[in-house]
Design a protein around this nucleic acid. Structure first.
Lengths: 157, 157
DNA sequence: ACTGAAACGATGAATGA
DNA sequence: TCATTCATCGTTTCAGT
């Protein structure tokens, strides 16, 4: 996790990769006007320094038995064991995201399961985690956008 | 978006790709014991049928100027124009996710910006979107897990 | 649907500017 | 840090089963 200096070329490369993680180095090289080996070096260093964390294949969760998305707020007892609850929550495969949030000593988790029945089962498991006080779920009806692409400084240049 | 029948081999391939979107077809072929061309055909059909939606490069948002994550609940006026608000919200690059949720006629959006000042600016933009009544933001302090990988039926076999 | 072979293109390392 | 070259490996097409 070295702290590299990121220049415009890095941002160009990252912008291309954010939109499509499957583009080849050779194609990136063509787009940015550099040799493939130069791009390879850049990408490798971005990976090494932790700027590029990895690559994910985006699948259609609705077609694969996880059609129900919910956001659940989980209140935990303050103090000892609070951070441990987050780790435990993260271990559930149906829990895609675990965020510790400000304000009310609670976690906000994103859950993806088959149906409401499965959600109930998951919530029941949350209840057994120790210092969990109560949970509050919001069910997603439709998802308009779901992405990880963040705006990079290179966008407006 | 054709409705293909997904068999065990498809699930095996998807499980490999979900964990690492950059594995080569040749390596998948080795793992599942098939020829590379066979895997290529499978992956191509999964892509064509919409099961595989794409590939994303996961970047370190903290290192790239989007260190603040927030979940904002946006109440909208019922009735006409409600779905349009979702489309408008999705157009903001700093808005990564837009979910229409049950219960209170509201959107839940995931926002990723530089700091609280930038968040304030984004919230101000939300206010100009027409039928928006009020917003309620929850700031993320630490993210324990953030993934898109869903559990597939092939996992327990 | 899968195999195997063959052509093509990308990867990745070495060298040098 | 990048370009060039080159051996190696992956991708992709196609004929055959």
């Amino acid at each position: 996790m070295n702290n590299r200096k990121i220049d415009n070329l890095d941002l160009e490369i990252l912008n291309i990769l954010q939109v499509d993680g499957k583009v080849s180095n050779a194609e990136i090289a063509r787009k940015v006007g550099k040799a493939p080996s130069a791009v390879l070096e850049r990408v490798r260093k971005l990976k090494q320094s932790g700027i590029i964390k990895g690559y994910e294949c985006i699948v259609d969760h609705k077609a694969l038995g996880s059609g129900l998305t919910a956001f659940t707020s989980i209140r935990v007892e303050e103090g000892v064991g609070a951070t441990e609850v987050g780790q435990r929550l993260a271990e559930f495969p149906e829990v895609l995201e675990v965020h510790y949030t400000a304000g009310r000593d609670s976690y906000l988790v994103k859950v993806r399961v088959e149906d409401t029945e499965a959600l109930q089962a998951t919530l029941a498991k949350f209840g057994t985690l120790g210092p969990v006080r109560d949970t509050n779920s919001t069910i997603v009806l439709t998802t308009v956008k779901e992405s990880r692409v963040i705006p990079l400084p290179g966008d407006d240049k």
